[in-house]
Write a protein that binds this DNA or RNA. Structure first.
Length: 311
DNA sequence: GTCCCGTTTC
DNA sequence: GAAACGGGAC
């Protein structure tokens, strides 16, 4: 007997016949949900942009950036022609963080044009070949653009399954449970609905009654009052971190186009001193990492080191 | 200070 | 399997 079949013997496990649970969630979602502009489109490019942006940022902060981005680069073909520097500059000036992802999006647009002749793959497996598209994003784009995805498993979904059905904190268990729950052929509405549930009713601090969670009658956590959620790793401090310094380099190079080391340094650290602990050597190391990430170009001219955003 | 969070790279 | 990757909201 497998663990999974043992789990179905306990109250709170994923129901063998999930149709009641499915109907309740879909009805709840369709009756009322947060409105986001990317929920009004099925264009895979527009969906991909929204997914890449919202992997890293609260949804309310993504709306303006998404609209501005699509105004400026309305299609994969247009984005593919853009300068990398402009895409990365846009990213940082909209406070989206993770500049590598601007690069991935730019590269993915290039792949669509070069490798796919402008024809988007329509399934998660094909979409996974795009740069920056992992399992979550592949299923999200396949679902929201083509209604052709598998069940998404993000931290919202994990939290919901862990609480409602006592799914153990284990990736393959989440995968199986999410897949069993999803109604066949309805990935678009289902994946929207289950993530909405995690986003408004089953957050870290749950709001079961306030959000009128449709799963209260089946939910293990609602029954027991134990709203423990899977652990999320605590992140190292950002203030003073290398990540913060990288962000400052990108911002400064967006503003000034091209800077010598000693002009850039003070914009990255107020205590920059060419020969100090945080001096040329340190800055050069930071720039070399950014260069190998494909974000920055470092050039020697007349014995001076100059940095700019990579085109 | 704490929370948010998926993908790439090694 | 772990580390690196951002910056704003609260």
């Amino acid at each position: 007997m497998t663990d999974q079949s043992a789990a179905t013997d306990r109250p709170g496990a994923v129901p063998a016949d999930p149709s009641a649970v499915q109907d309740a969630l879909v009805e709840w979602y369709e009756a009322d949900h947060r409105s986001y502009p990317w929920r009004e489109t099925t264009d895979p490019y527009e969906i991909l942009v929204s997914e890449v942006m919202s992997q890293q940022t609260q949804l309310d902060r993504v709306v303006d950036a998404w609209e501005d981005f699509l105004d400026r680069w309305p299609s994969a073909a247009v984005l593919a022609e853009a300068d990398r520097a402009d895409v990365v500059g846009f990213w940082t000036s909209h406070s989206l963080g993770y500049n590598n992802r601007a690069k991935y999006l730019h590269e993915a647009a290039g792949q669509i044009v070069q490798d796919y002749g402008g024809e988007w793959p329509r399934d998660p497996d094909g979409l996974s070949d795009l740069m920056g598209v992992g399992p979550y994003t592949a299923n999200a784009v396949a679902s929201f653009a083509f209604n052709n995805g598998d069940a998404v498993v993000d931290t919202n979904v994990k939290r919901v399954l862990y609480r409602a059905f006592d799914v153990p904190d284990d990736d393959s268990a989440f995968e199986t449970a999410a897949s069993v729950l999803m109604p066949e052929g309805r990935s678009r509405v289902w994946n929207n609905a289950i993530m909405e549930l995690g986003g408004v009713a089953c957050e870290k601090t749950p709001d079961c009654d306030g959000a009128q969670c449709p799963w209260r009658e089946w939910c293990s956590a609602y029954e027991t009052g134990d709203f423990t959620a899977p652990d999320v790793p605590t992140q190292p401090e950002f203030e003073g971190s290398r990540r913060q310094m990288r962000g400052r380099v990108i911002s400064a190079l967006k503003e000034y186009d091209e800077l010598h080391l000693d002009d850039l340094g003070p914009r990255v650290r107020v205590d920059y001193a060419p020969d100090g602990e945080y001096g040329r050597e340190w800055l050069r190391g930071l720039l070399d990492d950014l260069a190998s990430d494909g974000l920055v170009d470092v050039e020697e001219s007349d014995g001076e080191t100059v940095a700019r955003l990579q085109r």
